[in-house]
């Protein structure tokens, strides 16, 4: 038994290939059995992954879901930013440059709007919970953009670590909700073409959320959503601690 665990741990990336293969196989089987394939296997696989991540967090108390379990450390490598970005770029192979150009303007506009919208919504929730310090309000608002914008803004403005932790929490909720919720709402928000995918990526901004949400909706939309989403965190880190914070401060005074 020990030698099995040792081998799986030593070859952790290989173990991750086998593990993910099994998760996907189970998911497609569930999709067939429970919904006759209507509820897409990849959507089930992503939800299953999130559930397992929750279990991993409970078991280990760590922050990396299943990847904190020694023999599944490879899941963290395979699902980390390096491979994720590599695969996202690969999805652009065969994508149409004309489509990118055609919706480029509205796509980029949606990035600015998306950052501002999430920030305002997050800030309002912070106010509703009784926060009055513009630094706290802005940090939580920034966290509602993404879980990277939150801490970057909080650190720049000198927010307390509790508030920064809250902002990360808000960003995590957003990213997970986008992964799970996108296939469910896609029909109602017209998410079935390259243009709305670019707007979707720009408004949501969370790379993991957009990557997961579009994968479960229609993989052909991935490159379009990913393209705009990739500008979001940078835009958030630019706007939140500067313009948006100044607006909050002037409103609070």
């Amino acid at each position: 038994m020990d030698s099995v665990v040792e081998a799986l741990t030593k070859l952790n990336l290989i173990s991750a290939f086998v593990f993910v293969g099994l998760v996907i196989w189970v998911s497609y089987w569930l999709s067939d059995v429970l919904s006759k394939g209507k509820f897409h296997g990849s959507a089930i696989a992503i939800i299953l992954g999130l559930v397992l991540a929750y279990v991993g967090g409970l078991v280990t108390g760590g922050e990396k879901g299943l990847a904190d379990i020694g023999l599944l450390a490879g899941v963290g490598v395979l699902g980390g930013a390096m491979f994720r970005d590599f695969a996202i770029v690969a999805t652009a192979f065969g994508a149409d440059l004309e489509d990118f150009k055609r919706s480029g303007f509205v796509g980029m506009m949606s990035v600015v709007l998306g950052v501002a919208l999430s920030f305002v919504v997050g800030a309002l929730v912070a106010v509703a919970f009784g926060y009055t310090d513009p630094v706290d309000i802005s940090t939580i608002g920034a966290g509602a953009a993404t879980y990277i914008v939150g801490p970057v803004t909080g650190t720049a403005l000198g927010a307390s670590s509790e508030v920064i932790a809250l902002s990360v929490g808000a960003g995590l909720v957003k990213s997970i909700l986008v992964m799970v919720g996108t296939p469910a709402v896609a029909k109602y928000i017209g998410l079935n073409n390259t243009k709305s995918a670019m707007i979707f990526g720009g408004l949501m901004g969370t790379t993991s959320g957009v990557a997961g949400g579009l994968a479960a909706t229609d993989p052909r939309l991935v490159p379009y959503g990913a393209l705009t989403a990739t500008f979001y965190t940078g835009m958030g880190c630019l706007l939140a601690p500067s313009v948006l914070y100044l607006i909050v401060r002037s409103l609070a005074a």
Partner: peptide
């Protein structure tokens, strides 16, 4: 891409998101 996204889902800090409390 999809297998990688599944691995990505499995390494998310889901517990952290839920423990963020009602405000988060």
């Amino acid at each position: 891409y999809i297998p990688i996204v599944v691995a990505m889902a499995a390494k998310q800090n889901v517990l952290g998101a839920i423990e963020g409390g009602p405000l988060a």
